[in-house]
């Protein structure tokens, strides 16, 4: 068996008396698309926040094994260092740099892959110029991937909702991750946009050799693209398996899917 890219063991997170994530274990293999589903307040976003360094987990271990690098524990590490190790995310409540242009948002994703400092920026020598050119080039490339190249100079906050979601993906991709965490990427999208999104996710996985961990309430999207699904309820993992197994799991149907799960 291949080594998991992300290996979460016994993760728990308390907020005061509330245990939002309770002893959850979960693996993501290289190149795999794993969906994380569950009712509202199940602790899905909290799990993302623990993995990406926004919160320091109360208990448990998180290991990241980026391809070609030694594996290491990332729980308790600062958010920006986790990103530098190849883990990028989007946010459930869109967090773009709303006053900056679309292109600048993506350029910011290149921050951790570039090095120009204060002195380099002021002197603007050949090295700094080249790096700036490469940043612009890479950012345009990412915008093309998600179909936003035509909006490069727009102010990000003025984009329509669906486009903002895609811009968040482009910005995350600019950090050159090996694992992408998407928090409800289809929320607020119309059915047409959602269908395009599901093609986009599958295409990105192939083109960039990405593994993807995805939170989503849109069951059609989840069932279509996931290799595996993990179900959370009240912070606990109640099921894990292929889309077919999950669809027919009585526990999951009771807790979450209900009748419309078969839609």
């Amino acid at each position: 068996m291949t080594e998991p890219l992300l290996d979460i063991r016994g993760l728990s997170m308390d907020f005061g008396g509330l245990r939002a994530v309770d002893d959850v274990s979960l693996q993501v293999l290289p190149g795999e698309i794993v969906a994380l589903i569950g009712p509202n307040g199940a602790g899905k976003t909290t799990l993302f926040n623990c993995v990406t360094g926004v919160y320091r987990p109360t208990a448990g271990q998180i290991r990241l094994q980026p391809p070609g690098l030694p594996g290491r524990r990332i729980d308790g590490l600062a958010a920006h260092r986790i990103t530098a190790l190849g883990l990028a995310r989007t946010f459930q409540n869109i967090r773009l740099f709303a006053g900056m242009t679309v292109l600048e948002n993506v350029m910011l994703g290149r921050h951790c892959r570039t090095t120009t400092g204060l002195l380099g920026a002021v002197l603007k020598g050949p090295g700094a110029r080249r790096q700036e050119r490469e940043t612009v080039e890479a950012a345009f490339g990412m915008l093309e991937r998600v179909g936003l190249a035509g909006y490069a100079d727009e102010i990000a906050g003025n984009l329509p909702y669906g486009a903002q979601r895609r811009l968040e993906i482009a910005r995350a991709l600019a950090t050159a991750p090996s694992l992408l965490l998407l928090d409800e990427p289809a929320a607020g999208m119309n059915p047409q946009e959602t269908r395009e999104l599901d093609e986009l996710i599958v295409r990105l996985r192939h083109e960039l050799a990405l593994a993807i961990l995805l939170i989503e309430h849109d069951m059609r999207l989840v069932m279509n693209i996931s290799d595996r699904i993990v179900v959370l309820e009240y912070g606990k993992r109640i099921a894990c398996g292929t889309p077919l197994e999950i669809r027919n799991d009585p526990k999951v149907i009771e807790a979450y899917l209900g009748e419309d799960g078969h839609a």
């Binding site: 926004v54 958010a79 990103t83 530098a84 990028a88 967090r95 910011l108």
Partner: peptide
Amino acid sequence: EDEIACAAMGVD
């Protein structure tokens, strides 16, 4: 614009 997103993008 957004400190949390900034950190998530790898900015120290």
